[in-house]
């Protein structure tokens, strides 16, 4: 007989949000808050809780850029690359960030503290260039300002 190891956290989330299809995305969102990404096992366990196929869970998750299925760091830095930020020095901010946390765009640091990703317009164009670190927006960035912000995160 197949032994099923209980995934306590997934069960808790299903209890909290419910087990109907409309609960799927809130459950996946909470998993990402907890682990920063969706592991294969978590997706299988969510599928079992909601009684849908794992492929369906995977297919839904991969549609959304914030529902990552790859390992990500504790702090996910998303740098806006859309036009206003591009015009106002996004490239300089990007290379500053790369220098400070010593990873390239698309990478996650080996200690899994940081991931560096791009995003499309995050809604702060009048205060470009802008980034998100997890849920927090930082705007009107200069190389000095972003350096200071990241130093704080490195110390955390």
């Amino acid at each position: 007989m197949e032994t099923i190891i209980e995934n306590e956290f997934v069960r808790e989330l299903a209890n909290k949000h419910g087990r109907s299809r409309e609960s799927l995305i809130p459950i996946l969102q909470d998993l990402v808050v907890q682990n920063r990404f969706l592991s294969k096992q978590d997706m299988v366990d969510v599928a079992r809780e909601l009684d849908i196929s794992a492929a369906d869970v995977y297919g839904t998750a991969t549609f959304y850029s914030f529902l990552d299925t790859e390992v990500r760091g504790k702090y996910i830095i998303r740098i806006c690359k859309t036009i206003s930020c591009a015009m106002k020095g996004k490239n300089e901010i990007l290379s500053t960030i790369e220098d400070i946390i010593k990873i390239k765009l698309g990478e996650t640091s080996s200690d899994r503290k940081f991931s560096l990703l791009e995003a499309n317009c995050i809604g702060w164009c009048h205060k470009a260039p802008a980034i998100l670190i997890n849920d927090t927006p930082y705007t009107e960035l200069t190389p000095e300002k972003v350096t200071e912000i990241l130093r704080d995160y490195i110390r955390k």
């Binding site: 036009i83 317009c121 809604g123």
Partner: peptide, 10 residues
């Protein structure tokens, strides 16, 4: 509010 350049709804 995802249209590039729109941030008034926020």
């Amino acid at each position: 509010e995802g249209e590039p350049g729109t941030f008034k709804d926020r």
